[in-house]
């Protein structure tokens, strides 16, 4: 029982840690333009592209759009997108669950919705939908890239990036002292739609920026090491009808059915691990290959 003596402390803090990281990321992108304003310019940028003292990080889709629109790539584009995709391959689309400021707001909206309806999690639609979300996003991305290639050589899909709108809003407010109005109505409008429709539909079905990172996460499943939630059937002591872990998942995935298509969508938020904590502890994070 060596494992269980260590794990509970780790598990207890997953949710708190994650919220802290999410809020911290949100605040970091308020702090960065503030620091820039006071002549500290080692960190610059927003969630489209970011520069941490010379280390570039970038939204892979924005880089792809710029490459397609201009028929050229730069070393910084490859490095920036590459680092993000590498992280996604190793950690899964953890960006969505741990860093994305819109993800945070979307989760809060989902919590609000659950409280209102009295259901903890929309547990009825389980992990039966696999590739459909990825298909929708792929269609959107393909249409965008086609538009860029044929008619409009601008990174148009970046206009659909919610984290970009949120972080650009603060950049505009602090560095340029002006209100970025589209961010003020677009982000709340999408949140309202998510509240009405439920199921975090923007993140799951539409967000084009998440496509490349979830595909990298899918490819990462073939790597010898990749962070994932692992289900140990032997330890599961819940009846089949009990869906504590399923209800905990804000993306309506079924943690007890770890198929690749579903694992690729899992953002490693750890909510199911948290839900299982008081039960059989059949779910846990593992940084390894399949068995």
């Amino acid at each position: 029982m060596k494992e269980s003596s260590i794990r509970p402390t780790i598990r207890r803090s997953i949710r708190v840690t994650r919220r802290a990281v999410q809020v911290g990321t949100f605040l970091a992108f308020v702090l960065i333009p503030l620091l820039n304003n006071y002549d500290m310019r080692a960190l610059t940028g927003n969630m489209v592209a970011f520069n941490a003292a010379g280390v570039p990080l970038a939204d892979p889709l924005a880089m792809l759009q710029a490459a397609v629109g201009s028929f050229s790539v730069t070393a910084v584009m490859i490095t920036g997108a590459g680092l993000v995709l590498l992280a996604a391959a190793l950690l899964g689309p953890a960006f969505c669950g741990w860093l994305c400021p819109f993800g945070l707001l979307s989760e809060l909206v989902q919590c609000l919705r659950n409280k209102k309806s009295g259901v903890s999690g929309s547990a009825k639609s389980s992990g039966a939908v696999f590739f459909r979300p990825v298909l929708l996003k792929s269609g959107l991305v393909a249409a965008g890239l086609l538009l860029i290639l044929t008619a409009l050589p601008l990174p148009v899909l970046t206009q659909l990036s919610m984290p970009a709108w949120i972080t650009r809003f603060w950049q505009h407010a602090i560095l340029l002292r002006e209100i970025l109005w589209p961010a003020l109505w677009l982000v709340p409008a999408v949140l309202l739609a998510e509240f009405v429709l439920g199921g975090r539909f923007w993140c799951r079905y539409l967000c084009p920026q998440s496509l490349l990172i979830s595909l990298a996460g899918l490819a990462g499943l073939a790597l010898p090491k990749r962070l994932q939630v692992r289900f140990t059937p032997k330890a599961c002591n819940c009846p089949a009808s009990d869906r504590a872990c399923l209800a905990a998942c804000s993306l309506n995935l079924n943690p007890r059915k770890p198929v690749a298509a579903q694992m690729a969508q899992c953002v490693n938020c750890g909510d199911c691990v948290e839900a299982c904590k008081k039960r059989g502890r059949a779910l846990g994070f593992k940084f390894s290959a399949k068995d």
Binding site: A49, F50, L180
Partner: peptide
Amino acid sequence: KSRCISCGQCVGVCNYACIAMTPDSLFGLD
């Protein structure tokens, strides 16, 4: 325009606060 992704890093590094970000068109980014 085909390359600018509106990351605003140019605004962040500008010591003279001389760079503004404004949209070019309806679909255009800042």
